[in-house]
Design a protein around this nucleic acid. Sequence first.
DNA 1: TTGTATGCGTTATCAC
DNA 2: GTGATAACGCATACAA
Lengths: 334, 334
Amino acid sequence: MASIKDVAREAGVSVATVSRVCNDSGVVSDSTRKHVLDIAAKLGYSPHAAARSLITSRTSTLGVLLPDLYGEFFSEVIRGIDRTVQASGYHLLVSRSHGDDREIVAAFRAMRGRVDGLLVMSPDLDARNAVTSLRDHFPVVLLNCPAEQDQHDSIVIANYEGASEAMRHLVDRGHRRIAMITGLARNYDSDERLRAFRDITRQAGIAAPDAIEVGGDFTEASGFRAGQAILDASPRPTAVFAANDSMAIGALSALGAGGLRVPEDISVVGFDDIPMARYMNPPLTTVHVDISTLGVRATERLLEHVRDGNGVTRQRELVPAHLVVRSSSGNPAA
Amino acid sequence: MASIKDVAREAGVSVATVSRVCNDSGVVSDSTRKHVLDIAAKLGYSPHAAARSLITSRTSTLGVLLPDLYGEFFSEVIRGIDRTVQASGYHLLVSRSHGDDREIVAAFRAMRGRVDGLLVMSPDLDARNAVTSLRDHFPVVLLNCPAEQDQHDSIVIANYEGASEAMRHLVDRGHRRIAMITGLARNYDSDERLRAFRDITRQAGIAAPDAIEVGGDFTEASGFRAGQAILDASPRPTAVFAANDSMAIGALSALGAGGLRVPEDISVVGFDDIPMARYMNPPLTTVHVDISTLGVRATERLLEHVRDGNGVTRQRELVPAHLVVRSSSGNPAA
DNA sequence: TTGTATGCGTTATCAC
DNA sequence: GTGATAACGCATACAA
């Protein structure tokens, strides 16, 4: 593979000149510039990224640490991240971690010399310490993580607000027996949405067994199982609030298979508004989140840090979440 | 950030010894090894990836070039890739390209010095030349690309076989008016699935206007629009074969909104078997593809190349695709 | 068993 | 305008 030396020799100039041409730095005469460019093209030369970043101490790469790459939600987040990263001329290094401290620390170490900054998406409540202790090494932006205000730079979904809106919608429609399908245990998003469920039901004077919580893990399969459990519950709820759309869709399927009509017999509300939600049968009432914006904003914030150093203030940014009423929710049966 | 020099100085040894300890190479006495390890831990030292790859000329990173990061299909592919990459101690650099030659070439260049090998997923039929001309720089494995047998290393879905099975299923059930919702134009997957549609309909003696093709682009929205067009078609088809599940789901929605019952009035068959397919209402009959395996196998093949050099033979590998009959397909109405 | 010295490909600081 | 040359952090051949 051709190096800067090859180009210099072939063009009859020094490596310094070739470097200047490639980086538009310093002053080079038009004629030599053109000549060097020609030779470089002929040799198919492209600078060696590792060598360059060794001397400049910049990699032009951003890292992203994800809990798992599953389903449309993450797909959309990555989409937003990728779009922004690419538009800024950066590269994207993705890594998955199960979320525990040890693994996050290991991932951080492995990133050294590979990235200029890191996007961490770890809704696991245990991971905070790892992030805090290692933040000194390079800029970090937290994405949908449980973080104290101003402690870290972070972008989070308005989980509580969105879930509250969804729950109020159900209560306002007259529902008095409501089930919640929760997400993974010790997960920030899930906990916040559950907190709203509890607050709103309490405010409405609804208590167990009229307010029940069924455990899920954000997958369609767990939503399906939860739906089956709700079918068997007595008294049977007239409405279901799922912590995300995938589970709502799984529940929709189980409820339908059990002979219930949605929304006539039972209402179902999800969270996220993944692209597929509106195409469900019936179209899913859900809390809309501009998911890719989550990725876009996080990346923009990280780029600010990477470029402007530590001059950027730390703050917590909220991505709004609003209820979109479609056909899967209605009034409870008389 | 602590470098190897800092560790060496602090430990009172040479950088060579520190290097040997870190890489388990050469022979180091147990006592100094332990000592060096302690100091390294104390200083929070981790080797600088760029510096290391400059001297070893290996990056421990694989690149993946994708057409777009949209929907569950890509999500699953990346999932498979990531799992394999990570299990092998490699990193993953993702990049998106719109698929045209120029952009692919640019992406290749930018990858120089960043990756040891590249996974290219570009179903666009125009991109072949770019890949061929740049393959010399590092190992490349094509993922679901139109490639001549033995010309490149590639993994492809058994598009034609799977689509044929789906079409035969419909014909065997007695359908004589069938619509196909195609994918993006000039897309390999779409073209192969369409080829099966045309072959099977021809073999069954079905011709226009009983065999119609409606244009889509793999999104739910395009499937929805196609579904509306099919509602208005006359004679109206009794079955629909969509080039992927997302479009099938969109069509399901449009057909239902138009008052048609599935499968009583019209059958719908998809392709991919994304996780959500079985939770549709009705559950979607579709061609199952072990999507993440596509990513896993491609990554394994690429790793073979990266590790064993050019000793690995080039070949085309097929990922099987088989029909899964659920409830969205049945016999045509009398 | 350990240390010294060289070079990987690039940019940056000087001279000229 | 251009060319030497020193660094960047590390691995390794060779010397001790």
